[in-house]
Design a protein around this nucleic acid. Structure first.
Length: 191
DNA sequence: CATGGGATTGACT
DNA sequence: GTCAATCCCATGC
């Protein structure tokens, strides 16, 4: 995925990432759920401006923004829009593709429980071995890399919904899901 | 320097 | 359905 891919409006990138592949080492998965965050709205960490914590968000596009949620989980984002704009796409769920055994081992689950391996932003980080050390990493060169959508998957049908787990700007439909996927972090709202 | 909130998960009732 | 774990970092004194 070239740097120019991320140097676009974050809503476009969030939608276009559905069906693409995230890889770290031997483990990889197809992105089935994303959320967009932008410094113009209060749910975004960058809303409060440039601080040591948000420096990655305001940095160049195509970097990984990894931060600790609830003191427990490392959450993976892709920094978007030009340098100076604080925006990123949160990766919320994957369909496991390769390295399933290692992912299951890291998650403390059976390899057969594929739906439990990456169906949540904290889960997929644990499965891929992503930590705060991956913050600010280059998504083109790794260790965490994003790859274009496999051609055999075809054009994905994408559904939109309100974002999950936030308390502000809950009205924005900035969650993007692969329609009908069984690997989402939570079901799509009815209708 | 002390405090409190948070883009979650899993265990338990 | 409820709730604790756990820690970074922004804010305020």
């Amino acid at each position: 995925m070239q740097p120019a891919f991320y140097d676009r409006p974050v809503l476009e990138v969030a939608r276009d990432l559905i069906g693409c592949v995230v890889r770290r080492g031997e483990c990889s998965g197809v992105i089935v759920e994303t959320e967009a965050y932008h410094d113009s709205e209060p749910a975004c960490h960058a809303f409060g401006g440039l601080t040591p914590r948000t420096a990655t968000l305001f940095g160049p596009p195509g970097a990984a923004y990894v931060y600790l949620s609830y003191g427990v989980h490392a959450l993976l984002n892709a920094v978007c829009e030009p340098e100076g704009v604080g925006a990123a796409v949160l990766i919320r769920a994957l369909m496991p593709l390769t390295g399933v055994e290692l992912m299951a081992q890291r998650r403390g689950r059976s390899p057969q429980a594929q739906r439990e391996l990456c169906s949540g932003p904290g889960k997929l980080s644990q499965a891929l071995g992503i930590s705060l050390a991956d913050n600010r990493g280059d998504l083109l060169h790794g260790p965490v890399t994003f790859e274009p959508r496999p051609a055999q998957l075809g054009a994905p049908a994408v559904s939109t919904a309100p974002r999950i787990g936030i308390t502000r700007a809950t009205e924005l439909p900035w969650r993007f899901c692969l329609s009908g996927s069984r690997f989402l972090s939570a079901p799509l709202p009815r209708r």
